[in-house]
Structures are given as structure tokens and as C-alpha cells.
């Protein structure tokens, strides 16, 4: 589905991605974990085209997309959420989701019909908003919502692009634990053929969800395996304990 080969990224002398070989299978529920500064978000930025890699290539369904611009990759089905909310803060929840859905349906540049008359866009947005239990907030502006709810809008926008590869950068960060189940339920109801990659700082949160886990340390793949294998891996524990002691 999505694959990287020998992906490298340097900022000057700083190597933030080192020879990353990574595969995300069709319909995968994959987690990418690693201590702070391991290069997880950089990796997402490389996959989505925000950053250009220094070396290496990115393949989507066997096709090289390394040189493709961000917007083109979205059209091919790569969607993401951000670690820190990136929303249209002055607009309502409905408008936020509608913008994404309009782009996916290719009507984002349509000038004549009012956005409020696009029944298909509105219905799809309403479905996503319901799915993330944001129904009561449809008409509220993002700035009026608590952070946890904003976080759900972030997911709704990504889903509005009906991705085939969904990259969730620390999706649970900032969501009160009482509400994390909304997020997990939403992810659980995703169509099985969507490949999902969750980026997380620690293992606990993704344990329930992930079928495979990749551990990234200092920009390089440190270990990969099933959750059981990773949990049993002493070196991984050492890395986490080490970084925990450093912190």
C-alpha cells in the first residue's frame, strides 16, 4: 500500500530520518511509536509531502510519489491529522468538515452554487460529524469548543477526505480520557480497507488498536513486530526506560 525505501532527511548536520524502510499494508492498523524527538512527525511530513526527503523514495501502491506535491498525494488518498490542531478556527465545525469534503468531491473551486446548497457535501459532513459525536456542536465555531472536541474535528476533516491511507499524528493527545473511546470507536468503524497509521508517544494507548508496531528511535527503525513482540522486546523497553530516565 504505502512504502518507503531508504528514506533519509537531514536538516544541515541533523539527521531526522535515517534509511527508513517501512511498509503499511492494505487495511493495516499500524502504530509508529518512539520517544520524543525520534522523528515521528518528520516521518509523517515526509509521507504527506510537507517535507521533501534528502534521499530515498516513497511508493503508494507501487507507484513512486516522492516528487508529488502535497495536494496531489491527498487526491491519491493520503490524509493526515496534526499533532497540534490545525483547524479553521473562526469557522464552524460544519464548515470545517465541509471544506474537506468539498475538496474530495472536487467542488472546492465551484463558484456559482452556494456551499449551503451542496446536499451531497452537507450530508457527508453531517454523517462524519455524527460519527464523531459532534452533532451538538455542528454550528459552533472551533474557538468555542474545548480542545478535546477540536481534536475530534481534526479527525473528521481527515475522514472527510475518504482516505485510503490515514495518518493520525498523536490523535489522543489532549483528549480527556473519558472521551478517548469516541476516537477509538471512530477508528474501529473505519472501512477495513483503509490503512491506518497511528503515531504515538507511548505503547499503552495503541496497544488495543494496533496489529503491528514500528518503533522509531533517532530517525531510524529500531524494531518492528506485533504488539506482543514489541512489548517483550527488552531493547525497546530499555530505550523507553532510558528516555524516561533522561526526561
Amino acid at each position: 500500500m504505502l512504502e518507503t525505501r531508504g528514506l533519509c532527511k537531514n536538516f544541515g548536520a541533523l539527521e531526522v530520518a535515517r534509511e527508513v524502510n517501512f511498509r503499511l499494508e492494505l487495511g493495516a492498523r499500524h502504530a509508529l511509536i518512539g520517544p520524543n524527538g525520534a522523528g515521528k512527525t518528520t516521518f509523517v511530513n515526509l509521507l504527506t509531502g510537507v517535507l521533501a526527503p534528502s534521499r530515498g523514495s516513497i511508493l503508494l501502491e507501487g507507484e513512486d510519489v516522492t516528487a508529488l506535491a502535497q495536494a496531489k498525494r491527498v487526491k491519491r488518498g493520503i490524509a493526515r491529522t496534526f499533532q497540534i490542531n490545525q483547524l479553521f478556527r473562526g469557522l464552524t465545525v460544519q464548515e470545517n468538515v465541509c471544506i474537506a469534503v468539498s475538496e474530495r468531491l472536487g467542488v472546492g473551486g465551484a463558484m456559482l452554487r452556494s456551499a449551503g446548497q451542496r446536499a451531497d457535501v452537507l450530508a457527508e459532513a453531517a454523517r462524519l460529524i455524527e460519527m464523531l459525536k459532534l452533532g451538538n456542536d455542528t454550528g459552533r465555531r472551533i474557538i468555542e469548543l474545548p480542545y478535546g472536541r477540536q481534536r475530534l474535528v481534526e479527525i473528521a476533516i481527515a475522514l472527510g477526505l475518504s482516505p485510503r491511507v490515514l495518518l493520525l499524528d498523536e490523535p489522543a493527545a489532549g483528549i480527556p480520557s473519558a472521551e478517548t473511546h469516541i476516537l477509538l470507536d471512530a477508528i474501529a468503524t473505519l472501512p477495513k480497507d483503509i490503512a491506518v497509521l497511528i503515531i504515538a508517544h507511548d505503547m499503552d494507548r495503541v496497544f488495543r488498536f494496533a496489529e503491528r508496531i514500528t518503533v522509531l528511535v533517532s530517525g531510524a527503525v529500531f524494531a518492528e513486530g506485533t504488539p506482543q513482540e514489541i512489548a517483550a522486546n527488552r531493547e525497546v523497553r530499555a530505550v523507553y526506560l532510558g528516555s524516561a530516565l533522561d526526561a
Binding site: 510537507v50 478556527r89 471544506i99
Partner: peptide, 22 residues
């Protein structure tokens, strides 16, 4: 229109607008 809506999107958050493929 949807076009106008996307303009407000650009005004509100450029990064996100790129990320929805606009």
C-alpha cells in the same frame, strides 16, 4: 459558494488547506 468557503479556509489555516489537498 464552495470557492468562497475555500478562500476563508485559506485565510484561517493555510497548513490545513494544503493538507486537505486544495
Amino acid at each position: 459558494s464552495s470557492f468562497g468557503q475555500s478562500l476563508t479556509g485559506i485565510r484561517e489555516n493555510l497548513l490545513r488547506m494544503h493538507a486537505v489537498g486544495a
